[in-house]
Amino acid sequence: MRPDEFLRTLALLPPPLHDRALTLRAFTRPTRCDDCQRIGDAVRLALTAAHYDELTSAGELLDTAERLAADHGIHRRSGDDQQRGRGRVVRWASASAPLVAATDASWKGRVGGIGYVVSDGHYGLLGRGTGRLDPTGASRVLINELRAVDYLLTGYDEAPVGMTVLLDCLAALRYLHRWQAGETGAMPAGYSLRERRWSDQPTLVRLAEQVARRPDLTFAHVKGHSGHALNEAADGLSHMARRRREESFDLRPRAHALVDAFLRDWHANATL
């Protein structure tokens, strides 16, 4: 399967299946290993099923591929935080400054990325393609800015009390403030509320309800590309995640080094 074919078909999958298939991508490449070939066949069949909107079958085929890969001894399920793009620079875990996070999104053509960084060393980055439920234009960018906030908050069992979240998108910030004020029905133009097969709720509906329950969280604006360390880190992570959808490079060490460098600057000059 050619890389462009894989990525084009991958975009048809909902987020949970998308991420599982992405971690199995290496098995779709030519190989002399019979076990790897069987795993790759299952992944290719899953993508074919997705092409025909048979998402249940696609999920079952990915189950098969993951089981075969686990037996082969070289694959970890995508539920692992690292496979989901999350990580932590542990030397900042004991930092005493108030907890501050920044989120950002990047979009170009048909691929995008979201990212976040927290002053205690937590970070995450995730690439995504255009889905069937994604609108076009300005709303797509806005929706992904909000998805980045959801990605941050769902990285915790319960978001830390009193955390400040910085965004450089004023439109996204306005929605967060409206939701926090109880207007959870307000949604960006074009955002589909139709039932999702892969989730109990659409992402932004879940985010709106969570934000409404958390008056202790502070959502604040930061000017983009102004040298703010946390914003620059989140921006860099989102761009890195977007590029990784189309290029091949070792993502994790680059992300880890980027976060560490910007957090060093943040803690040396800690201000919002």
Score class of each variant (00 low, 15 high):
V89Y: 11
R67K: 12
S226V: 00
R242I: 05
T154P: 01
A186H: 11
L217H: 07
L68R: 15
M187N: 02
G182F: 04
A49I: 07
A46D: 11
H18G: 07
R8A: 10
G73E: 09
D200V: 00
L142F: 05
R20G: 02
L251C: 11
H225N: 12
P14V: 01
L152D: 01
D260H: 03
T130C: 05
R206V: 02
G113Q: 03
E247M: 06
H75E: 12
L126F: 05
V205P: 00
H18K: 13
G131E: 08
E60T: 12
L99K: 02
D134Q: 08
Q201N: 03
A138E: 14
K108F: 07
Y123D: 07
L173P: 03
C36P: 00
E209G: 05
T103S: 10
Y52W: 14
R245V: 02
L170M: 12
F219G: 00
P135R: 06
M1K: 14
A95F: 11
L12T: 01
A101F: 05
A42P: 03
V43K: 07
F219P: 04
A42K: 09
V141L: 14
P253G: 07
V149A: 08
D200L: 01
R196W: 00
R140A: 06
Y191H: 07
W92K: 00
P202F: 02
G40K: 09
I114L: 15
D104W: 13
P202S: 10
R88I: 08
A97C: 12
Q201V: 02
A138H: 09
E5C: 04
H256S: 07
S248W: 04
G121E: 00
G236P: 12
L152G: 01
R140S: 06
E247L: 13
A138W: 02
P188V: 07
V211G: 03
G182A: 11
V43L: 13
M187V: 01
A189W: 04
A46E: 12
P202Q: 14
L173S: 11
R196G: 00
A70T: 15
D216E: 11
E209F: 00
S94V: 02
G59P: 02
A11M: 11
R88T: 12
L47T: 06
T23D: 05
A42N: 04
E195L: 08
K223Y: 00
R178C: 08
R132P: 00
G59E: 13
P14W: 05
L207E: 05
E145Q: 08
E195T: 09
E246S: 12
R77V: 12
L251I: 13
L45H: 14
R147L: 13
V43A: 09
S199G: 08
A220H: 13
R20D: 01
A220M: 07
A93C: 07
R29I: 00
R254P: 01
T103Q: 01
V100Q: 05
F262W: 15
C33V: 11
Q37I: 09
S199R: 13
G227I: 06
A220L: 10
D235M: 03
A138M: 12
M187E: 01
L152H: 09
A220Y: 08
I143G: 02
A65W: 07
L166E: 14
T31H: 06
Q37H: 15
G137D: 06
G131L: 08
E60F: 13
T48N: 14
H239K: 15
